[in-house]
Design a protein around this nucleic acid. Structure first.
Lengths: 334, 334
DNA sequence: ACTTATTATGTAAGCGCTTACAGCCTCAAT
DNA sequence: ATTGAGGCTGTAAGCGCTTACATAATAAGT
């Protein structure tokens, strides 16, 4: 069943059928109705590959995400997909993992499929050794299609970004803890991503501003699994901290479990701050103060930028920043 | 840059280039190397739409999921994507929501994009009033491409399914509670999905087997949000139950919060069982006994079925069932 | 050396659509 | 009646690839 069949049934030429399908061109009302009714009753669907061959796009957009089981990335994907769908785009999803090789191969598979644009969610490195390789392939991708990085930072022609104010947020919570008299603040992270680097910077600048010397032993890398974090803290020979800030709720909950095991009361003995304001933060007991990174707002901004890039080709500001929001619950006294 | 350019640069015909790209056909080693080197240095990528026009597929598979923010669905998507990617397929993702209309429109967008097959994750209705409409459009889809339903049940030509043993699992946990002397077991669910129906059936059959009369007031529909569940339980004029089984961990955690608020001790006063064995089950305190529905195993099975359908066209058994696993933690005494 | 298999390569016909261009009508203005 | 403008519609040329078929080149058999 192709456009010739429809044309024949409707007694018109294929050009006319094509015009009716595209909706825009001038077709008399009578023929339009005729053609539409034939299409309707025959259940005809145009071959998207042929359309793609002709016009160069099938209106699909790639979303590359390191790990969609991560709650906040799942939310991002969900939101992106919905917005794009509303605007007539389909989503090609790639779950790349955190390794460079995986990201690169997934990215190429998406480009090979001729996506109109790319969203890269989270976890781009910047300023580290890994930076160069990562920014390189992203720039290469951006040479082909517009790229919007969400919660990551890559500078370059044709690459835009939408990020949340991680640095400021981490500065704020750390400062709050300091103001409440905490001086030995444990910083826990599971990643070297751009976000993690921003958070680290915020933490450090709060310490510096307060004149508190940085202690290497209070900055730890841990896996993002509740029990793993708990056990690592339990195995510390001499746990010496009176507050914890974590770069994800899962990590923070591990600290809560540690407190429970060691009889530390929260928030008196130990204050704890999580990140991403996921359902974990209200599942745990006491409920966790957390930073809402406003995924939805960021994604909304990212989609807006992208759609404008695709349609109007007008120049766009390269990046937007959405400030985070601190959600105060029972693991802190501020 | 197209196949003609490559052919010219390599001094061969486009057919030869095409053969080299497809890898399979007979091409002399010398020409193959020549062509490959030209492709390499020119960075040529074949136009996937043209390929699709020729052969009818661009090796993409649709995944339709009601809500990817749901942890277990995110896991399913993640696993499916990885397996499919390994086998050379891309994933078109649709997040349809739970409404029929959304599902249908998303499904059509995927079919319009000429996917080779469809995964439908969760939440298909069966046996209810909604059943007919839902099975109808799924069957219609199955007339075009193979369909594999994950944790849902639709019978029909060309539609296969991979499900977990929800009914048995719910029967098992309910029976265990009964054996430990619980007789007023509150059943909490947030959905009318096939899975939910299976779980309900398991719950009911355990009661029946034990000769415990079913009480309507002990079977409640609630939203899947921790605080909402807690508040609903708190607002009950005369809460009369000594155990809770929930169809998702989020709901169960709400019950845990209810217990904490009302001074009920767990598991002495109230035993609680969650479902899906998500990170919520270990974030909450006390940690939640939960049912592991083995998403990964189900998805592995689903992918295996699908790939065989796509390649060998050999007949496949219409459905497979993976038994659940009960993960015992601190909210029950069995 | 000559025919026959066998392999390697090229030619050309689609695949189903979009769209520039040309042609035909109709209608209003002269 | 004649002409021109403008609105509809049709014709045909791609888009970039795959692949059946034809052809050329090589190897093998007598």
């Amino acid at each position: 069943m192709n456009i010739y069949d429809i044309a024949e049934m409707a007694g018109v030429s294929i050009a006319t059928v094509s015009r009716v399908m595209s909706g825009s061109d001038k077709v008399s009302d009578k023929t339009r109705k005729k053609v539409l009714s034939v299409i309707e009753e025959s259940g005809y669907t145009p071959n998207v590959f042929a359309q793609g061959l002709g016009v160069g796009t099938i209106h699909s957009i790639g979303i590359l995400v390191p790990n969609i089981s991560d709650l906040y990335m799942a939310e991002a994907v969900s939101f992106l997909e919905n917005e794009l769908q509303k605007n007539g785009y389909n989503c090609l999803l790639g779950c790349s993992g955190f390794e460079l090789s995986g990201k690169e191969s997934h990215l190429h598979m998406l480009l090979d499929k001729r996506v109109d644009a790319l969203f890269l969610v989270g976890s781009t490195y910047a300023g580290s050794g890994k930076s160069d390789a990562e920014t390189d392939y992203i720039r290469a991708a951006a040479a082909q299609v517009p790229v919007v990085v969400i919660n990551g930072a890559v500078k370059g022609e044709n690459v835009h970004s939408a990020v949340c104010g991680d640095r400021q947020a981490m500065y704020d919570v750390t400062s709050s803890l300091i103001q409440r008299g905490r001086k030995r603040i444990l910083f826990l992270t599971d990643s070297h991503s751009y976000s993690a680097q921003e958070k680290t910077a915020g933490y450090l600048s709060a310490l510096e501003e307060a004149g508190i010397p940085v202690r290497e032993d209070l900055m730890m890398h841990v896996p993002n699994r509740i029990h793993a974090v708990r056990d690592i803290l339990l195995s510390l020979p001499d746990p010496d901290f009176d507050a914890v800030v974590a770069t994800d709720d899962g990590i923070a909950v591990g600290a809560v479990k540690f407190a429970a095991r060691t009889g530390r009361s929260i928030p008196q003995d130990l204050q704890i701050v999580g990140y991403n304001n996921s359902s974990l933060s209200v599942a745990c007991e006491p409920e966790l103060t957390s930073v809402d990174n406003r995924t939805e707002d960021i994604c909304r901004g990212a989609v807006t930028v992208l759609l404008r890039l695709l349609s109007e080709k007008e120049p766009m500001p390269p990046s937007m920043v959405v400030p985070c929001r601190i959600v105060r619950r029972r693991t802190t006294d501020f």
